[in-house]
Amino acid sequence: MSRLAAEFLTRARDTIAVYPGKRSALIPLLHLAQEQDGYLTGDAMEHIAELLDLTPAEVMGTASFYDMLFTEKVGRWLVSVCTNIACLLNGGYELLDHAEKKLGVRPGVTSHDGRFTLEEVECIARCDEAPCLAVNWRYFGRVSNDGFDQLLVDLESGRLDEQVPPHGTLNRIRRQVGLAAGAPPATVPPGPAEGTPPGYPDAPKPT
């Protein structure tokens, strides 16, 4: 359990600064917390809530909606096998069966040694290379059973460390500038009538 460390806190503050509304930084910050710990710890979510002036429940509410955000520990490698229509037609389920046997776990489960989490996912948009899978969201296409076995060997030997970073690391490229053009004008116009969505074109103007 850990709050965001100094390096991640700096990056979090930089991220918050590029949005007109603080809460918009929530999903990027949750990815950041996953990059630090591999999954979302309660402490990290509380820390994010503090940074964004939200309640921990609001943070949890958003986090629990999205498939890529994990509130429980996952393996070092998240293996996501696609079984949606294009992969289904080209052997996606056969690949998933093989992966289950090879890793000894059902989809949604982490292996005993804590290294692999297997997942069955919806279309990940690499249909031209079906059946496909992703490891920590790095894509591999036209995966045969032998290809899958070889992939595990390559992962464990470290040969793919460059290509496949640890789980949670999504975008390794940092934004180099803040808002160069300056912040947009105040986002919420002052005082629309109560109950009217702000910005609604026919909203009565305050007198």
Partner: peptide, 21 residues
């Protein structure tokens, strides 16, 4: 960013990640 190609027009862009939905 600011004053794009000297035209006086300024705008910022941000890459925003989704999270699987």
């Amino acid at each position: 960013g600011r004053d794009i190609f000297g035209s006086g027009f300024s705008v910022d862009a941000v890459v925003h990640p989704g999270a699987g939905a």
